[in-house]
Design a binder for these strands. Structure first.
Lengths: 342, 342
DNA sequence: AACATTATCGCAAACCTTTGCAATAAAGTT
DNA sequence: AACTTTATTGCAAAGGTTTGCGATAATGTT
């Protein structure tokens, strides 16, 4: 019938493997070829056979651009994060990619660098590429939500995660911060820790306030006689300094760190003072899990899994994309992972 | 002339802002509008003015699909890595994104999970999406390079990074492993360490062999009287066990870890034995930088920066995309970062 | 006044695929 | 024999943009 050679002699390889070429060499119409390849019932079995054979032979691969133009939809999900690196987002992205791939979607990753302007430009990119949906961890400076409105109006669902704005307009998925705070306090109480240095992040951040509120509330309710020393740190260095000063001044039962960054700082101070864990001092953190696994003994922690958040976020976004618009805020539960530090 | 209202009354917002609509409402042809928007000299100044105004008013955003179909090229770079998370790749991706964005490119991130089949599928995805170029950290099981050939034949440049195959066909960019090995040895020697426990990864990996060879060679040449204990570990746990056993049996000057994972294991053993750094024992690692910064004192390390590798990789790929095909292997230099552990 | 130049702009094809509908031929039904 | 079904395939439009070339009118040149 035909060989690879004489096919290619007609059209030299150069990505010229289109429906049209298959059609020409089989003396069929483009539409027939198109239907044959997607197993349309209208097409005769022997025709399908021939088409499939040639398609395989010349390694036909559909042109995504044409399909996307025709259907005006892509299988790409835009992801906008302040930074890819750092303690948290890469885990999120990994989990998200896993889930997305199993549904046939790919990820388009954009960093905002915490700059609302870049964020807006990235959003525009997603619109131009007709992303199927967008996941956003808002830049800390973002107050104007109109760029997101525009995206939403263009029919591209937007779901916020982790750093979510106040607005109730968009679906949001975040860690169960209150639960994590509660669980932290509960764990410390049940381990009999009474005199605790509790390190939190920037008080301006809602995540800090949520965790702190639940943490304090739980102590007041279930162990009002405990001694709680609350401190706030805005960086690893600050956390270290605060911890060091504190443990030099006084003996604590335990140190609690509300995040990986804070934990890293606190651990430095503890290592510097050469305190024994858990005998001299107990340690508990809210964490993604990597950092706690680096010490000896490993640090017990309340897990706020980036992977899980990623998977969950995709689920919510996926619902949004299939017209069944969910609404409100969704929480990824926190769980206690026991290691040897308490 | 016209108002927003009566424009929208004609065509209700629904992402219907195309060149065609601008043309109709301005009684111009599509081509004129297209040219006006890209400041083509053929178009009269006042026409450009009007077009731009309306375009802005209705928030015109070009349809990327149509452009890509027309030009058969996208501004997307495919990135295939074994895993996004882990000690290294997220830093790479972050650096790459930074550089790519400044050139107007976006990233499409795919995980292979170290599975050659998934890798091949991801490659196909990149082809279908006519990626402008592809960066690949090969899955460890990948031996058949034909999927990459096919991509290359389709006119999409492929550049390998980090995990690079033996083949000399594709450009490769990787860390200067030999240099890192040399630098490590040199640093240990110049700090006067004589009895060293040196921990390396899986000997089957080329990265291990390169670093080890340079490391050993340097000692033989510059400090042949040193006592080197070489050990191989395939995981954090193994590294820890090996280190623990070793430092229980004998007193070492220093511990050297050839990677973050190995370092993490070694540090656990050191912490467990409560050895003082750097007095009881010195520590040096080849690392990305995050892990060493978590201990007290921070660990000195030879930096193999994922960010830098990302930026460099983009540069090489960028050259490939502009027909100036570079060739061979490119190395990102390693530098010594001094902290307090030696 | 006849011609050449310049400034603007529109036509139409091309990129590749999908899909409603029409067309054709073969087979079955009365 | 006239008719309806069924099976198979093709036509053509649509999706939005880019671009070579042709068209028109206005201006400049001899």
């Amino acid at each position: 019938m035909f060989s690879v050679d004489n096919f290619f002699s007609f059209s030299p390889m150069k990505s010229r493997s289109t429906l049209k070429h298959i059609a020409e060499h089989l003396h069929l119409s483009i539409s027939t070829v198109s239907r044959a390849l997607k197993d349309h019932p209208d097409i005769a079995a022997h025709t399908k056979q021939k088409v499939r054979e040639l398609a395989e032979l010349i390694e036909y691969e559909p042109n995504a651009f044409a399909i996307q133009l025709r259907t005006n939809a892509s299988k790409v999900i835009g992801v906008i994060v302040p930074e890819i690196s750092g303690y948290f987002y890469h885990a999120f992205i990994a989990g998200l990619e896993d889930e997305a791939r199993s549904w046939g979607y790919s990820l388009m990753i954009l960093q905002s660098g915490n700059d609302p302007e870049t964020e807006s430009a990235n959003l525009r990119l997603c619109r131009m590429n007709r992303a199927a949906g967008i996941l956003v961890a808002a830049a800390s400076g973002t107050t104007d939500l109109s760029p997101f409105d525009r995206t939403d109006a263009a029919g591209i669902p937007v779901v916020f995660f982790d750093k979510v704005p106040e607005s109730r307009q968009f679906p949001k998925v975040s860690m169960a911060d209150a639960e994590a705070g509660f669980l932290s306090a509960d764990t410390l109480i049940s381990k009999g820790r009474k005199n605790i240095l509790a390190l939190f992040g920037d008080h301006a951040l809602s995540i800090t306030r949520k965790r702190l509120k639940a943490f304090q509330g739980t102590f007041q309710r279930h162990a009002p006689d405990s001694r709680l020393t609350i401190r706030h740190a805005r960086s690893q260095q600050e956390s270290r300094q605060i911890t060091f000063d504190a443990i030099c001044l006084e003996e604590y039962d335990a140190v609690f760190a509300m995040s990986d960054e804070i934990l890293a700082g606190a651990m430095k101070a503890i290592l510097q003072r050469r305190l024994r864990i858990p005998d001299d001092i107990g340690v508990l953190a809210i964490s993604t899990g990597l950092i706690p696994s680096l010490y000896e003994p490993e640090i017990s922690y309340i897990e706020t899994s980036g992977e899980k958040l990623g998977k969950r976020s995709f689920e919510i976004l996926h619902k949004c994309m299939s017209k069944a618009a969910p609404h409100g805020e969704f929480l990824v539960p926190a769980t206690f992972i026991e290691k040897g530090s308490l």
